[in-house]
Design a protein around this nucleic acid. Structure first.
Lengths: 180, 180
DNA sequence: ACTGCCATGTAACTAGTTACATGATTGG
DNA sequence: CCAATCATGTAACTAGTTACATGGCAGT
Protein backbone atom coordinates (compact mmCIF):
# COMPACT_ATOMS: atom_id res chain seq x y z
CA UNK A 1 0.00 0.00 0.00
CA UNK A 2 2.81 2.40 -0.68
CA UNK A 3 0.95 5.41 -2.00
CA UNK A 4 2.66 7.71 -4.40
CA UNK A 5 1.65 11.16 -3.27
CA UNK A 6 3.42 14.49 -3.54
CA UNK A 7 4.56 15.86 -0.22
CA UNK A 8 1.74 18.37 -0.32
CA UNK A 9 -0.64 15.43 -0.20
CA UNK A 10 1.01 14.12 2.94
CA UNK A 11 0.89 17.56 4.46
CA UNK A 12 -2.85 17.69 3.91
CA UNK A 13 -3.28 14.23 5.38
CA UNK A 14 -1.14 15.15 8.34
CA UNK A 15 -3.03 18.33 9.06
CA UNK A 16 -6.33 16.47 8.92
CA UNK A 17 -4.89 13.87 11.25
CA UNK A 18 -3.79 16.49 13.76
CA UNK A 19 -6.70 18.89 13.52
CA UNK A 20 -9.68 16.70 12.72
CA UNK A 21 -12.34 17.67 10.23
CA UNK A 22 -11.50 20.78 8.20
CA UNK A 23 -12.52 22.57 5.05
CA UNK A 24 -10.12 23.45 2.26
CA UNK A 25 -10.10 26.99 3.47
CA UNK A 26 -9.24 26.04 7.01
CA UNK A 27 -6.54 23.71 5.78
CA UNK A 28 -4.93 26.53 3.92
CA UNK A 29 -4.67 28.46 7.15
CA UNK A 30 -3.36 25.45 9.04
CA UNK A 31 -0.76 24.93 6.36
CA UNK A 32 0.37 28.47 6.85
CA UNK A 33 2.01 27.47 10.10
CA UNK A 34 4.48 25.39 8.13
CA UNK A 35 5.99 28.30 6.27
CA UNK A 36 8.95 28.74 8.61
CA UNK A 37 10.41 25.35 7.88
CA UNK A 38 8.47 24.15 4.87
CA UNK A 39 6.89 26.51 2.37
CA UNK A 40 3.18 26.77 2.54
CA UNK A 41 1.31 25.30 -0.45
CA UNK A 42 -1.05 27.42 -2.54
CA UNK A 43 -4.77 27.12 -1.99
CA UNK A 44 -5.41 25.48 -5.31
CA UNK A 45 -2.91 22.79 -4.50
CA UNK A 46 -4.71 21.97 -1.31
CA UNK A 47 -7.96 21.58 -3.20
CA UNK A 48 -6.28 19.41 -5.78
CA UNK A 49 -4.81 17.16 -3.11
CA UNK A 50 -8.14 16.90 -1.35
CA UNK A 51 -9.79 15.71 -4.53
CA UNK A 52 -7.00 13.25 -5.16
CA UNK A 53 -7.07 11.95 -1.61
CA UNK A 54 -10.81 11.52 -1.67
CA UNK A 55 -10.63 9.63 -4.93
CA UNK A 56 -8.00 7.38 -3.42
CA UNK A 57 -10.26 6.70 -0.44
CA UNK A 58 -7.91 8.27 2.08
CA UNK A 59 -10.23 11.05 3.18
CA UNK A 60 -13.97 11.51 3.14
CA UNK A 61 -16.05 14.64 2.96
CA UNK A 62 -19.48 15.92 3.78
CA UNK A 63 -21.26 18.88 2.35
CA UNK A 64 -22.51 21.63 4.64
CA UNK A 65 -24.99 24.24 3.55
CA UNK A 66 -24.54 27.64 5.08
CA UNK A 67 -26.82 30.60 4.81
CA UNK A 68 -25.36 33.85 3.65
CA UNK A 69 -22.08 32.11 2.86
CA UNK A 70 -21.04 29.73 0.14
CA UNK A 71 -21.56 26.08 1.01
CA UNK A 72 -18.55 24.27 2.28
CA UNK A 73 -17.11 20.82 2.32
CA UNK A 74 -15.56 19.36 5.40
CA UNK A 75 -12.89 16.71 5.02
CA UNK A 76 -11.96 14.03 7.47
CA UNK A 77 -9.12 11.54 7.30
CA UNK A 78 -10.09 7.88 7.00
CA UNK A 79 -8.39 4.92 8.61
CA UNK A 80 -6.62 4.04 5.40
CA UNK A 81 -5.46 7.63 5.12
CA UNK A 82 -4.00 7.63 8.59
CA UNK A 83 -2.19 4.39 7.85
CA UNK A 84 -0.70 5.79 4.66
CA UNK A 85 0.31 8.96 6.45
CA UNK A 86 2.00 7.16 9.30
CA UNK A 87 3.83 4.92 6.92
CA UNK A 88 5.22 7.96 5.14
CA UNK A 89 6.05 9.62 8.42
CA UNK A 90 8.03 6.68 9.74
CA UNK A 91 9.64 5.78 6.49
CA UNK A 92 13.32 6.63 6.12
CA UNK A 93 13.52 8.32 2.82
CA UNK A 94 14.18 11.98 3.40
CA UNK A 95 14.38 14.06 0.27
CA UNK A 96 17.16 16.62 0.48
CA UNK A 97 16.60 19.91 2.21
CA UNK A 98 15.98 22.67 -0.27
CA UNK A 99 17.00 26.26 0.24
CA UNK A 100 16.21 29.13 -2.04
CA UNK A 101 18.05 32.07 -0.62
CA UNK A 102 17.66 35.04 -2.94
CA UNK A 103 20.23 37.12 -1.12
CA UNK A 104 22.96 34.52 -1.35
CA UNK A 105 22.10 34.01 -4.97
CA UNK A 106 22.53 37.69 -5.72
CA UNK A 107 25.70 37.87 -3.67
CA UNK A 108 27.13 34.98 -5.64
CA UNK A 109 26.93 37.23 -8.69
CA UNK A 110 28.21 40.13 -6.60
CA UNK A 111 31.04 41.15 -8.87
CA UNK A 112 28.42 42.22 -11.40
CA UNK A 113 26.38 44.37 -9.04
CA UNK A 114 26.81 47.65 -7.20
CA UNK A 115 28.06 47.74 -3.69
CA UNK A 116 25.30 50.14 -2.74
CA UNK A 117 22.59 47.82 -3.97
CA UNK A 118 24.15 44.90 -2.10
CA UNK A 119 24.21 46.80 1.14
CA UNK A 120 20.66 47.99 0.65
CA UNK A 121 19.44 44.43 0.02
CA UNK A 122 21.12 43.05 3.08
CA UNK A 123 19.56 45.79 5.12
CA UNK A 124 16.13 44.85 3.86
CA UNK A 125 16.77 41.21 4.54
CA UNK A 126 17.83 41.94 8.09
CA UNK A 127 14.74 44.00 8.73
CA UNK A 128 12.55 41.25 7.40
CA UNK A 129 14.21 38.60 9.49
CA UNK A 130 13.97 40.67 12.60
CA UNK A 131 10.23 40.73 12.05
CA UNK A 132 10.15 36.96 11.57
CA UNK A 133 12.05 36.52 14.76
CA UNK A 134 9.58 38.67 16.63
CA UNK A 135 6.66 36.66 15.24
CA UNK A 136 8.30 33.41 16.19
CA UNK A 137 9.01 34.67 19.67
CA UNK A 138 5.32 35.39 20.11
CA UNK A 139 4.37 31.95 18.82
CA UNK A 140 6.83 30.41 21.24
CA UNK A 141 5.45 32.31 24.16
CA UNK A 142 1.95 31.13 23.50
CA UNK A 143 2.93 27.50 23.49
CA UNK A 144 5.61 27.34 26.12
CA UNK A 145 3.30 25.89 28.76
CA UNK A 146 1.42 23.22 26.88
CA UNK A 147 3.19 19.84 27.14
CA UNK A 148 0.95 18.61 24.36
CA UNK A 149 2.81 20.74 21.91
CA UNK A 150 6.19 19.21 22.43
CA UNK A 151 6.88 18.74 18.73
CA UNK A 152 5.54 22.07 17.64
CA UNK A 153 7.72 23.67 20.25
CA UNK A 154 10.69 21.76 18.87
CA UNK A 155 10.26 23.09 15.37
CA UNK A 156 9.56 26.59 16.59
CA UNK A 157 12.78 26.42 18.53
CA UNK A 158 14.55 25.30 15.42
CA UNK A 159 12.96 28.20 13.53
CA UNK A 160 14.12 30.74 16.07
CA UNK A 161 17.61 29.41 16.08
CA UNK A 162 17.69 29.32 12.31
CA UNK A 163 16.44 32.89 12.04
CA UNK A 164 18.95 34.15 14.57
CA UNK A 165 21.76 32.52 12.65
CA UNK A 166 20.59 34.06 9.40
CA UNK A 167 20.54 37.46 11.05
CA UNK A 168 24.02 37.03 12.43
CA UNK A 169 25.40 35.95 9.08
CA UNK A 170 23.71 38.78 7.26
CA UNK A 171 25.13 41.30 9.69
CA UNK A 172 28.58 39.82 9.38
CA UNK A 173 28.44 39.98 5.59
CA UNK A 174 27.05 43.50 5.69
CA UNK A 175 30.00 44.58 7.75
CA UNK A 176 32.44 43.00 5.34
CA UNK A 177 30.84 44.81 2.45
CA UNK A 178 30.87 48.14 4.23
CA UNK A 179 34.49 47.82 5.32
CA UNK A 180 36.00 46.19 2.25
CA UNK B 1 12.97 47.00 -20.48
CA UNK B 2 11.86 45.18 -17.38
CA UNK B 3 11.99 41.60 -18.54
CA UNK B 4 9.72 39.12 -16.89
CA UNK B 5 11.85 36.05 -16.49
CA UNK B 6 11.72 33.26 -13.93
CA UNK B 7 14.64 33.26 -11.57
CA UNK B 8 16.06 30.28 -13.40
CA UNK B 9 16.37 32.53 -16.44
CA UNK B 10 18.38 35.05 -14.48
CA UNK B 11 20.56 32.30 -13.13
CA UNK B 12 21.38 31.18 -16.65
CA UNK B 13 22.12 34.76 -17.71
CA UNK B 14 24.29 35.28 -14.68
CA UNK B 15 26.28 32.12 -15.22
CA UNK B 16 26.89 33.08 -18.83
CA UNK B 17 27.95 36.52 -17.68
CA UNK B 18 30.43 35.10 -15.18
CA UNK B 19 31.74 32.16 -17.17
CA UNK B 20 31.56 33.28 -20.78
CA UNK B 21 30.42 31.04 -23.59
CA UNK B 22 28.97 27.73 -22.42
CA UNK B 23 26.82 24.88 -23.66
CA UNK B 24 23.64 23.74 -21.93
CA UNK B 25 25.50 20.84 -20.50
CA UNK B 26 28.23 22.99 -19.06
CA UNK B 27 25.67 25.38 -17.65
CA UNK B 28 24.04 22.55 -15.81
CA UNK B 29 27.31 21.80 -14.12
CA UNK B 30 27.93 25.45 -13.34
CA UNK B 31 24.46 25.69 -11.86
CA UNK B 32 25.32 22.81 -9.63
CA UNK B 33 27.51 25.08 -7.56
CA UNK B 34 24.41 26.94 -6.46
CA UNK B 35 22.84 24.02 -4.70
CA UNK B 36 24.01 24.97 -1.24
CA UNK B 37 22.11 28.21 -1.16
CA UNK B 38 19.78 27.98 -4.11
CA UNK B 39 18.53 24.70 -5.47
CA UNK B 40 20.04 23.70 -8.74
CA UNK B 41 17.64 23.73 -11.70
CA UNK B 42 16.99 20.59 -13.75
CA UNK B 43 18.71 20.21 -17.08
CA UNK B 44 15.56 20.58 -19.07
CA UNK B 45 14.84 23.88 -17.43
CA UNK B 46 18.19 25.22 -18.44
CA UNK B 47 17.50 24.28 -22.03
CA UNK B 48 14.09 25.86 -21.87
CA UNK B 49 15.52 29.09 -20.50
CA UNK B 50 18.24 29.14 -23.13
CA UNK B 51 15.65 28.91 -25.87
CA UNK B 52 13.57 31.62 -24.26
CA UNK B 53 16.55 33.89 -23.75
CA UNK B 54 17.69 33.46 -27.31
CA UNK B 55 14.25 34.26 -28.64
CA UNK B 56 14.23 37.38 -26.49
CA UNK B 57 17.58 38.42 -27.94
CA UNK B 58 19.40 38.24 -24.63
CA UNK B 59 21.82 35.49 -25.60
CA UNK B 60 23.20 34.24 -28.90
CA UNK B 61 24.40 30.81 -29.88
CA UNK B 62 26.62 29.10 -32.37
CA UNK B 63 26.57 25.53 -33.49
CA UNK B 64 29.67 23.39 -33.14
CA UNK B 65 30.09 20.06 -34.88
CA UNK B 66 32.02 17.46 -32.98
CA UNK B 67 33.20 14.13 -34.22
CA UNK B 68 32.33 11.08 -32.18
CA UNK B 69 30.11 13.21 -29.94
CA UNK B 70 26.76 14.83 -30.46
CA UNK B 71 26.97 18.36 -31.86
CA UNK B 72 26.70 21.11 -29.35
CA UNK B 73 25.53 24.65 -29.13
CA UNK B 74 27.49 27.29 -27.31
CA UNK B 75 25.64 30.21 -25.79
CA UNK B 76 26.97 33.67 -25.10
CA UNK B 77 25.30 36.55 -23.31
CA UNK B 78 24.56 39.63 -25.40
CA UNK B 79 24.81 43.26 -24.32
CA UNK B 80 21.07 43.47 -23.85
CA UNK B 81 21.20 40.32 -21.76
CA UNK B 82 23.86 41.69 -19.49
CA UNK B 83 21.85 44.87 -19.05
CA UNK B 84 18.74 42.92 -18.11
CA UNK B 85 20.70 40.75 -15.73
CA UNK B 86 22.33 43.66 -13.96
CA UNK B 87 19.05 45.41 -13.63
CA UNK B 88 17.59 42.38 -11.92
CA UNK B 89 20.68 42.01 -9.76
CA UNK B 90 20.55 45.55 -8.48
CA UNK B 91 16.83 45.75 -8.16
CA UNK B 92 15.43 45.64 -4.65
CA UNK B 93 12.71 43.13 -4.87
CA UNK B 94 13.80 40.05 -2.99
CA UNK B 95 11.34 37.20 -3.03
CA UNK B 96 11.14 35.49 0.35
CA UNK B 97 13.64 32.85 1.30
CA UNK B 98 12.18 29.40 0.89
CA UNK B 99 13.09 26.43 3.02
CA UNK B 100 11.85 22.92 2.55
CA UNK B 101 13.17 21.04 5.49
CA UNK B 102 11.82 17.49 5.42
CA UNK B 103 13.05 16.69 8.90
CA UNK B 104 11.34 19.61 10.53
CA UNK B 105 8.19 18.79 8.59
CA UNK B 106 8.17 15.26 9.90
CA UNK B 107 8.98 16.40 13.41
CA UNK B 108 6.06 18.79 13.28
CA UNK B 109 3.85 15.74 12.97
CA UNK B 110 5.95 13.96 15.56
CA UNK B 111 3.11 12.94 17.85
CA UNK B 112 1.95 10.61 15.10
CA UNK B 113 5.27 8.89 14.53
CA UNK B 114 7.51 6.51 16.41
CA UNK B 115 10.32 7.75 18.53
CA UNK B 116 12.66 5.22 17.01
CA UNK B 117 11.97 6.42 13.48
CA UNK B 118 12.49 10.02 14.54
CA UNK B 119 15.86 9.26 16.03
CA UNK B 120 16.89 7.24 13.02
CA UNK B 121 15.97 10.06 10.68
CA UNK B 122 17.87 12.65 12.62
CA UNK B 123 20.89 10.39 12.58
CA UNK B 124 20.71 10.13 8.82
CA UNK B 125 20.32 13.85 8.48
CA UNK B 126 23.35 14.48 10.66
CA UNK B 127 25.45 12.11 8.63
CA UNK B 128 24.39 13.78 5.43
CA UNK B 129 25.14 17.22 6.70
CA UNK B 130 28.52 16.20 7.98
CA UNK B 131 29.34 15.16 4.44
CA UNK B 132 28.11 18.48 3.09
CA UNK B 133 30.26 20.27 5.57
CA UNK B 134 33.30 18.30 4.49
CA UNK B 135 32.61 19.12 0.84
CA UNK B 136 32.20 22.78 1.61
CA UNK B 137 35.40 22.82 3.59
CA UNK B 138 37.24 21.50 0.56
CA UNK B 139 35.65 24.09 -1.70
CA UNK B 140 36.66 26.78 0.72
CA UNK B 141 40.23 25.59 0.87
CA UNK B 142 40.58 25.76 -2.90
CA UNK B 143 39.44 29.33 -3.09
CA UNK B 144 40.87 30.88 0.02
CA UNK B 145 43.77 32.55 -1.80
CA UNK B 146 42.13 34.05 -4.84
CA UNK B 147 41.01 37.64 -4.19
CA UNK B 148 38.95 37.44 -7.36
CA UNK B 149 36.55 35.09 -5.68
CA UNK B 150 35.54 37.43 -2.93
CA UNK B 151 31.82 36.86 -3.44
CA UNK B 152 32.01 33.16 -3.94
CA UNK B 153 34.00 32.94 -0.76
CA UNK B 154 31.29 34.92 1.00
CA UNK B 155 28.54 32.53 0.05
CA UNK B 156 30.65 29.50 0.82
CA UNK B 157 31.28 30.95 4.23
CA UNK B 158 27.57 31.41 4.65
CA UNK B 159 27.04 27.83 3.56
CA UNK B 160 29.50 26.49 6.08
CA UNK B 161 28.00 28.48 8.86
CA UNK B 162 24.52 27.43 7.88
CA UNK B 163 25.49 23.78 7.74
CA UNK B 164 27.20 23.92 11.10
CA UNK B 165 24.13 25.45 12.63
CA UNK B 166 21.89 22.79 11.15
CA UNK B 167 24.14 20.12 12.58
CA UNK B 168 24.11 21.69 16.01
CA UNK B 169 20.34 21.98 16.01
CA UNK B 170 19.88 18.44 14.82
CA UNK B 171 22.15 17.15 17.55
CA UNK B 172 20.35 19.16 20.16
CA UNK B 173 16.98 17.85 19.04
CA UNK B 174 18.32 14.32 18.87
CA UNK B 175 19.43 14.59 22.46
CA UNK B 176 16.03 15.85 23.55
CA UNK B 177 14.34 12.95 21.84
CA UNK B 178 16.69 10.42 23.36
CA UNK B 179 16.37 11.84 26.85
CA UNK B 180 12.66 12.69 26.87
C1' DA C 1 31.94 -7.60 -21.25
C1' DC C 2 29.56 -4.80 -18.49
C1' DT C 3 28.72 -0.79 -15.64
C1' DG C 4 28.83 3.72 -15.10
C1' DC C 5 29.59 8.23 -16.37
C1' DC C 6 30.69 11.92 -19.97
C1' DA C 7 28.12 14.66 -23.19
C1' DT C 8 24.26 16.25 -25.79
C1' DG C 9 19.65 17.12 -25.76
C1' DT C 10 14.00 16.27 -26.05
C1' DA C 11 9.24 14.75 -24.61
C1' DA C 12 5.81 13.92 -21.43
C1' DC C 13 4.19 14.58 -17.06
C1' DT C 14 3.34 16.68 -12.36
C1' DA C 15 3.63 20.39 -9.13
C1' DG C 16 2.92 25.00 -8.07
C1' DT C 17 1.31 29.92 -9.05
C1' DT C 18 -1.77 33.58 -10.41
C1' DA C 19 -5.88 35.31 -11.42
C1' DC C 20 -10.59 35.17 -11.15
C1' DA C 21 -15.63 34.63 -9.28
C1' DT C 22 -19.08 35.33 -5.64
C1' DG C 23 -21.02 37.35 -1.73
C1' DA C 24 -20.99 38.67 3.48
C1' DT C 25 -19.02 41.38 7.12
C1' DT C 26 -16.04 44.70 9.33
C1' DG C 27 -13.15 48.89 9.87
C1' DG C 28 -12.02 53.57 8.74
C1' DC D 1 -19.42 54.17 1.08
C1' DC D 2 -15.23 51.97 -0.11
C1' DA D 3 -11.49 48.90 0.83
C1' DA D 4 -10.02 45.01 3.14
C1' DT D 5 -10.75 40.58 4.74
C1' DC D 6 -13.41 36.40 5.61
C1' DA D 7 -14.96 32.40 3.17
C1' DT D 8 -15.57 29.31 -0.53
C1' DG D 9 -13.76 27.53 -4.49
C1' DT D 10 -12.25 26.98 -10.02
C1' DA D 11 -9.58 27.79 -14.41
C1' DA D 12 -5.63 28.77 -16.89
C1' DC D 13 -0.92 29.13 -16.96
C1' DT D 14 4.12 28.48 -15.77
C1' DA D 15 7.76 26.12 -13.48
C1' DG D 16 10.01 22.05 -12.38
C1' DT D 17 10.74 16.79 -12.59
C1' DT D 18 11.41 12.32 -14.63
C1' DA D 19 12.32 9.49 -18.11
C1' DC D 20 14.18 8.69 -22.37
C1' DA D 21 17.54 8.58 -26.61
C1' DT D 22 22.20 8.31 -28.50
C1' DG D 23 26.86 7.00 -28.52
C1' DG D 24 31.78 7.21 -26.83
C1' DC D 25 35.22 6.14 -23.47
C1' DA D 26 37.22 4.60 -18.95
C1' DG D 27 37.56 1.61 -15.22
C1' DT D 28 37.14 -3.32 -13.15
Amino acid sequence: MTQQLPITGFIVLGLLALNGEQSGYELRKSAHALKYFYWSPAQSQIYRELRRLEKAGLVESRHIEQEGKPDKQLFKIKKAGLAVFKQWLNHQDLPPMIIKHPIMLKLYFGELSDRKAQIEMLGQFIKRYQDSLAELAIVQEFMSEDPDQFFKALVVEWGIHHTETELLMAQKILKKLQDG
